[in-house]
Structures are given as structure tokens and as C-alpha cells.
Computed example of a mutant assay.
Amino acid sequence: MNQQRRTRVKVCGLTRVEDVDAAVASGADALGFVLWPGSKRAVDLEQLAALSARVPAFVTRVGLFVDQSAEAIADCAPHLDLLQFHGDESPTFCAAAPRPWIKALRMRDGIDLHAAAADYVGARALLLDAYKPGVPGGTGETFDWSRIPADLAKPIILAGGLTVANIAAAISAVRPFAVDVSGGVESSPGIKQAELMSGFLRSVMAVDERLTKRAY
């Protein structure tokens, strides 16, 4: 008999204290802070320190980096629990990170996820996002979820254009370990809406419950 499973939720691109509080209140498992200056949702080190201090125990603080220096990552690491490498970082670079890490992969044509899982063997999970040339993430676009192999040797974090409207279909199709939402719970880049975050979390819990009942 299958045991009940729960899809974890990461809310990414937080820039305001009130949004951190609302995300925690909604039940988010992880909060993402974008440390790449090229993003509309970027925060600097001072902002990261203030936002990170609001996060209670057992909620994971994730820092998103895109091809940044080891020094920049080390400066941010004291305020983070997990690192998310969202650029072209090599397995060797990631392995030297000062915190546990996940590797984001953009689902370009021809990508070999089995090979990537083997290459990034030290990753705690692989985050799969939509591919758009020249844009490392945050596209607000989905991709063909059927391209994800069911037997991938790493936990999957599903990202890319997720909203209340499509999260049930996404979880039903992929059964990921976790999902990552950013633009789908915003009024504008970096400005979250508490009701959208809570609605997203409720939708995730509802589909988990339905799938669990179906398995028994």
C-alpha cells in the first residue's frame, strides 16, 4: 500500500519582509532569495540578511546564484541553508560550495537528464525549469512535463510558469518531490500576494490528498 506523500513548496524571489512572513504563514517549506544582480527580483547582501532573519526554524532559506564568484557565494552563505545554482556552473564548482546545493537545469532541446544527474551527483535535487534563450530563469513559461523521465536518479523540483490554475495538472503529471513558484504568486516581479501564496499552497495540498486517496 502506498504511503501518503507530500509535495514540498518553495516560494522564490522574495524581496519584502511582509512577503516572507506571509509565505511562512501559508506553509511554504522553503523561501528563495535571488542573489543574481541581473534579476528584477534581486536582493543585495544587506537585504538578504534582514529577510533571512525573519525565517523561522525548519523553513529552508535558499539562495539563487547565476555563474557568480565563489567569494560572492561565501559572503551570502551565513544567511542561507541551501544554494541553488541556476547558471552554467560546473559540477566541480558546485561541489566546492559552502552549503548543500541544488542544480537548476533549463529544459532545452536534447538535454540528457540522466547524464546531468550523474554529472551533478552531489546535488540534493535537480530543479527543472523552462528554457528561453538568454534568460537563466523566471520566464513564467511552462515546458512539456512529459519530457521528464520517471526514473531520474535525483529528486525533482518542478519550476516554470506554475500557478494555482495549473499546479494540480503539474503535480499529477510529474509527481515531483517539490515545486517552485515565483511569478505565479506575484502582482509584479518581487512583490508577492499573500492570498495567491496561500491559494497555491492549498491547491498543492488538495492534489496531494486526491492522489493519495487514489493510490489506496
Rank of each mutant, 00 (worst) to 15 (best):
S172E: 14
A173S: 14
A159P: 00
T139K: 05
A150C: 00
I148Q: 12
T142C: 12
A115I: 05
A104S: 14
I156K: 05
D119L: 15
R99I: 02
I157F: 11
P155Q: 08
P100Q: 03
P133D: 14
A159Q: 09
A123C: 08
T163M: 06
L126C: 08
Y120W: 09
P149V: 07
A165I: 00
D112N: 15
A173L: 01
L162K: 05
S172D: 10
A125M: 09
P176N: 10
V181P: 11
R99D: 01
Y131W: 15
L128T: 12
R124P: 00
L162N: 07
A153P: 01
V135C: 05
T142K: 07
K132C: 07
G122N: 11
A116D: 13
A165K: 13
V179N: 11
S172I: 00
G137A: 07
P176G: 02
W145V: 04
D151R: 03
A169F: 00
A115M: 10
V174C: 12
V121T: 12
V179T: 11
G134T: 08
P149Y: 11
I171M: 02
D129S: 09
D112K: 11
W145N: 11
V179Q: 04
F177V: 03
V135Y: 08
G137R: 06
A153C: 10
W145F: 10
F143V: 07
A170Y: 01
A165V: 04
K103C: 08
T142D: 02
L158H: 13
A170F: 03
A104N: 05
A123H: 09
F143M: 12
V181I: 15
R99P: 01
A173H: 02
A178S: 14
A165D: 14
I102V: 15
V179G: 07
L113W: 12
D119M: 13
W101N: 02
L128E: 10
I102M: 15
A125W: 04
D119H: 12
T163Y: 03
G122R: 06
P98K: 03
L152V: 08
F143L: 10
Y131F: 15
L127H: 11
A170G: 04
I102K: 05
L105A: 08
G110Q: 03
D129N: 02
D119C: 10
P133R: 10
G183L: 02
I156A: 04
A169V: 01
R106F: 03
H114C: 05
